[in-house]
């Protein structure tokens, strides 16, 4: 096993561990109070209404319109519709960038399928299925690299020149874009030197079978190092917003689940009310963490026999 293979495994392990840690961090956070924002698509009311529009809403069966939710989410995920509608000048660059990213990841998936087929003894020149996987790798990869490059360059220029964005762009933001752009460009150059991605497929197959890999060309090594470096770094960045979007939309903006006697919800609320409070504001009266939420919330420091205010 050579050093590149070791680095690739290490990068994969770092990605999985830290990405999972991040997901876990959000999964295990306490249930928050309701903080939804309308329109909530699963309410199924195109004017943005909610169950609160109905008299005695708690007596009615709650209707959750999943189709409406998907109708909203699919264009949002695929086309970044929010940005298309509200920030078209940025969408022009960020859409090709993200599409390039999705297609490149798609290309990698087809490359992995091709590698598995190769391990099973089905090379592209002898198997229709393997040839299809190869063609799809090329189509997804090449279009992805091209769009990703266009998007990355456009975003770098925009971030450096747009007065709205300039003051909100750090060196690290530019490095991230440059890094991803470099992966796209070198990926494209790899394709020029190896139009069927045969070497890359062979390398992936060697990783999957823990066997020595083919010798890689200079551009392939650069592309690989850029990629695995980014893969390991990614979970530590705000670029995981693809995933956080799920939490932010599904678990915050659209979480309108009412408290109607759900045992799980009740037991969570009871547990939270027993958490100690240590806010120092004098009016809180938390006594430095000696009081619980239930205690401070049911204490009225100003309680007195009623007197008219003077």
């Amino acid at each position: 096993m050579d050093i590149l293979q070791l680095l690739t495994y290490a990068s994969g392990v770092i990605f999985v561990v830290f990405f999972a840690r991040k997901l876990l961090k959000y999964w295990t956070m306490p249930m928050h109070v309701r903080w939804e924002l309308y329109p909530v698509p699963h309410e199924g009311k195109e004017w943005g209404g909610s169950f609160y529009e109905d008299v005695d809403h708690w007596k009615k069966t709650r209707h959750v319109d999943h189709v409406a939710q998907y109708r909203f989410m699919v264009p949002e995920i695929l086309f970044i519709r929010a940005l298309y509608e509200d920030n078209r000048p940025l969408w022009r660059w960020t859409f090709p960038f993200h599409l390039g990213l999705y297609l490149s990841i798609g290309g990698l998936v087809f490359l992995a399928i091709g590698a598995l087929l190769q391990i099973a003894g089905r090379a592209p020149d002898a198997s229709g299925l393997a040839a299809l996987a190869q063609s799809l790798t090329i189509i997804f990869g090449v279009i992805g690299f091209a769009l990703g490059t266009i998007g990355a360059v456009g975003l770098i220029v925009k971030r450096l020149t747009d007065p709205m964005l300039k003051d909100y762009t750090s060196g690290l933001d530019l490095l991230n874009l440059f890094w991803l752009g470099a992966i796209f460009v070198t990926g494209f150059l790899v394709w020029l030197s190896d139009p069927g991605f045969a070497v890359s497929r062979g390398y992936l197959a060697s990783l999957l079978t823990f066997s020595p890999g083919p010798s890689l060309g200079g551009m392939q090594i650069i592309n690989l190092l850029l990629f695995i470096g980014f893969w390991a770094y990614f979970p530590f960045t705000h670029m995981t917003h693809m995933i956080s979007k799920y939490f932010m939309w599904d678990k915050v903006k659209w979480d309108d689940m009412p408290n109607r006697g759900d045992a799980g919800m009740d037991s969570k609320i009871k547990a939270y009310l027993s958490y100690p409070v240590s806010w120092s504001g004098a009016h809180i009266g938390a006594e430095g963490g000696k009081k619980s939420w239930a205690e401070v919330a049911t204490t009225n420091p100003w309680a007195q026999p009623q007197k008219e205010e003077k």
Binding site: E36, L37, Y38, E43, G48, G49, S50, F51, Y52, E53
Partner: peptide
């Protein structure tokens, strides 16, 4: 309206 969905 925006924060509670009572619109109609």
């Amino acid at each position: 309206v925006r924060l509670m969905g009572v619109v109609k």
